[in-house]
Simulated assay, not measured.
Amino acid sequence: MLRTLSLVLCLVAVSQQLEISKFSVPEAVEKGSDAELLCEHDGIGKLFTVKWYWSPNGADEPTQIYQRVLGREQIITIPKTEPHLNITLIEEEKHNLALWDLQPEHSGTFQCQVAEEQGDFQERRNASDMVVFSIGEGPKLSFEGEEEVLVVCEAVGIAPKPDISISYDSTTFNTTLLEGPIDGLYNVSTNATLHRQDIEGVEISCKLSFEDESIASDVMEVADTYQSADSAERTTAVWALAALATLLHLQL
Rank of each mutant, 00 (worst) to 15 (best):
L11R: 12
L11E: 10
V12F: 13
V12R: 14
A13D: 15
V14R: 08
Q16A: 14
Q17C: 15
Q17T: 14
Q17S: 14
Q17V: 09
L18S: 07
I20Y: 06
I20Q: 05
I20H: 01
S21P: 03
S21R: 11
K22M: 10
S24I: 01
S24V: 04
P26F: 12
P26N: 10
E27I: 05
V29Q: 00
E30P: 03
K31S: 14
G32P: 12
S33V: 07
D34E: 13
A35N: 07
A35F: 04
L37G: 04
H41R: 10
D42H: 03
G43D: 13
G43A: 13
L47G: 04
F48N: 03
F48S: 03
T49Y: 05
T49C: 13
K51E: 07
Y53Q: 01
Y53I: 00
Y53T: 03
W54Y: 14
N57I: 12
A59I: 13
A59D: 13
P62N: 15
T63A: 04
Q64R: 14
I65M: 05
I65L: 08
Y66F: 15
Q67C: 06
V69C: 02
V69G: 00
L70R: 00
L70F: 08
L70H: 00
E73I: 01
I75V: 11
I75E: 14
T77W: 00
T77P: 01
T77C: 02
I78Q: 12
I78K: 15
P79C: 12
P79T: 00
P79H: 11
K80E: 15
K80I: 07
T81V: 15
E82C: 05
P83K: 05
P83Y: 13
P83I: 02
H84I: 13
H84L: 12
L85Q: 03
N86C: 08
N86E: 03
N86M: 14
N86T: 08
I87L: 07
I87R: 00
T88Y: 00
I90D: 15
E91P: 00
E91C: 03
E92D: 13
E92G: 05
E92K: 14
E92A: 10
E93F: 07
K94L: 10
K94N: 10
H95Q: 05
N96Q: 09
L97E: 05
A98F: 03
A98H: 08
W100G: 11
W100H: 14
W100C: 08
D101I: 06
L102K: 02
L102P: 05
P104T: 04
P104D: 07
S107Q: 07
T109N: 08
T109P: 09
F110M: 01
F110G: 01
C112W: 03
V114T: 02
A115F: 01
A115V: 08
E116G: 15
E116K: 12
E116L: 04
Q118K: 08
Q118T: 10
G119W: 01
G119D: 09
G119P: 11
D120G: 05
D120Q: 09
F121C: 02
Q122E: 15
E123H: 07
E123L: 14
